[in-house]
């Protein structure tokens, strides 16, 4: 009990010190943001966050997709011993629910993907939405993806990263790694985003589906 009290007091002291430090910090001046706004015209998209994610700092995004794929590999190494059979059966309510909901989810994911080039949206948000749709589909119809081969699934989940690295190698012919040529930038970003959306959706959905799939 004493240990907990001392810890809470230390936390309060720490919080007070942090508050003081932040309150006396100099005001923020957006230097990087002005650089981004100045070069927005040559990035190929007109939304600044998408421009930073897929053009100016594309290497970060590539490594991030690599990290997510690595997490999936770790899960697939650990998970086969710890699955259990979910409780599901055919049900009129869930069937009608998924039949109405899934087209709306796919449509809004595609809209978010295309809207990413000029306003909020983009590949990551669209892939999260699509992954949610796949998870709901798997929960209501558990026998749906059982016949899908493991190898195809692995290829699909690595496809986004492979395509991204391939584009990077192609841009090495003239210029630096992932420095898109000016006239192709828009098309290249849209292609990368589309493939990234599908493969990230499959990866994020298999984070969950690996956990509930039954072994038979």
């Amino acid at each position: 009990m004493l240990y907990k009290g001392v810890l809470w007091c230390m936390a309060a002291l720490f919080l007070g010190m942090l508050f003081f430090m932040v309150a006396t910090m100099p005001p923020f001046s957006p230097k990087l943001d002005t650089l981004v706004q100045a070069d927005l015209a040559m990035s190929g998209v007109s939304h600044d966050v998408t421009a930073v994610l897929l053009n100016f700092r594309a290497l970060d995004t590539l490594l991030e997709v690599g990290v997510v794929l690595l997490a999936l590999m770790g899960i697939q190494v650990v998970s086969p011993h710890f699955r259990y059979k979910p409780y599901t059966e055919a049900n009129t309510i869930t069937d009608i629910y998924i039949a109405i909901l899934l087209p709306v989810i796919i449509l809004s994911a595609l809209y978010l993907l295309l809207a990413g080039s000029y306003k909020s949206g983009g590949a990551f948000v669209a892939s999260a939405l699509l992954a949610g749709g796949i998870i709901i589909l798997k929960l209501t119809k558990p026998k749906l993806f059982v016949s899908l081969e493991k190898l195809h699934l692995r290829f699909l989940s690595a496809l986004g990263l492979l395509f991204f690295v391939g584009i990077g190698v192609l841009t090495l012919i003239e210029g630096l790694f992932l420095q898109y040529p000016l006239s192709y930038a828009s098309t290249l970003i849209l292609m990368i985003e589309t493939l990234l959306m599908f493969s990230l959706a499959i990866i994020l959905a298999s984070f969950f589906i690996n956990a509930v799939q039954d072994l038979e």
Binding site: V49, L112, G122, V125, A128, L129, A131, G132, I135, L204
Partner: peptide, 15 residues
């Protein structure tokens, strides 16, 4: 930060 709002609902809270 509307991108973050969408991502937070879908990833942080949903999945």
């Amino acid at each position: 930060a509307f991108d973050l709002a969408l991502a937070e609902v879908a990833l942080g809270s949903g999945i």
